[in-house]
Design a protein around this nucleic acid. Structure first.
Lengths: 212, 212
DNA sequence: ACCTGAACACCGTTCAAGT
DNA sequence: ACCTGAACACCGTTCAAGT
């Protein structure tokens, strides 16, 4: 067939299949031909729905960011809202680690990422932070969340005891992979709680009369 | 010529050319054929010196990590040493941002990265941290440094004012790129100093009799 | 031992040809 | 408007052939 009466492809179907492919087999597995095969069409067909492969990747990335829960900013004091947002952000990225290298580049022109940045920045300004500080805090949170989701610290150390023979303090490092979750979550928690309580005292020292 | 009396290629020359290519044009520009051209040989020649392209990439990454200064761990109290190491780490990665996605995956089997992890972990243990906490702190520092080097927060927001029309708090966001350095360095500094002073009080609260 | 050209199975993308 | 096959200029990698 050359042209079915109803289009074989929709943006939704393409992005959904692309997201599934990235989640299951990683970003390098997402090729135009492979994605087309998954959808039952030929590679060039996709170019009737997207201009470039980069647009497909961006759509996948934004669908992931759209899952982050920012609702806490309407209902909690800024400290608790920041904590809840960061935890949701972290949970979503941990569930889709293969797309994190794209998110780490910033919002670009992706609507969900821009909307999230807008909400967070607005809430920090409302809380009494200066524009410069609010920007720093937003950046810092992205550093922590993408940094932790991009590469599992624990999995960064191979499972092979012989590798660490020459490193006096790393003899147990081959066990890290086994404790992946506790290690990575513990480090993220430590970072998040340390940062939030540090920021809390910083704000109250800068503006002693501000409300919580 | 098929075989010159002295090898045309050395590991040093290959890794140096690869590093220059990555720095100048980014990781995607590093192809085997392109690198070979840069070195005045044909693509397949490189396979006499490396088994895979991934080995070349790893060698480039490790050469970058080798530039990080860990000497502070021998001469300063752990807090100041951690600060100086993190700043050096950050400076090196900021100078070679294109290779950061590789470093963010962890040390793997790269000797310089393993040596750095060994030094940092050992120093934290010596300072009185428990193995679990020392691991968390090491992870946390990698999150912050790679997260901040991977994607400039400022450059993540495109330079185009029209893009932000729909986002009430982002009307100035198009100016971020212009202030890239101040924004990114300010966020990193805020994060590093907040974390270090938070960790300092945490250690003294856990072990009130420990030396600095 | 080390470099080569030819080949294999891939890429992203373009485009004339079909309906 | 939307899907196709053929083509272009790329990939990483293998391998027999040269010296």
């Amino acid at each position: 067939m050359a042209r079915p009466r109803q289009s074989l492809l929709t943006l939704q179907r393409i992005v959904g299949a692309a997201a599934a492919l990235v989640d299951a087999e990683g970003l390098p597995a997402l090729s135009v031909r492979r994605l087309a095969t998954e959808l039952g069409v030929q590679g060039p067909s996709l170019y009737h729905h997207f201009d470039t492969k980069a647009e497909i990747v961006d759509a996948v990335a934004d669908a992931v960011v759209a899952q982050v829960d920012v609702s806490a900013f309407g209902t909690y004091p800024w400290c608790e809202a920041l904590r809840r947002w960061a935890r949701s952000y972290h949970a979503v990225l941990s569930a889709h680690p293969n797309i994190v290298p794209v998110l780490a580049q910033g919002p670009g022109r992706r609507p969900a990422a821009l909307a999230m940045a807008d909400t967070v920045y607005g809430a920090l300004i409302d809380a009494g932070w200066s524009p410069v500080r609010a920007t720093h805090i937003g950046a810092l949170m992205r550093y922590l969340v993408t940094g932790s989701a991009l590469g599992s610290f624990a999995l960064g150390f191979p499972d092979d005891p012989r590798l660490y023979a020459d490193y006096p303090h790393l003899h147990q490092a081959y066990l890290l992979a086994e404790h992946r979750e506790r290690v990575d979550e513990g480090a993220f928690d430590l970072g998040l709680e340390t940062l939030i309580s540090g920021l809390e005292s910083l704000l109250s020292s800068e503006f002693p009369n501000e409300r919580a």
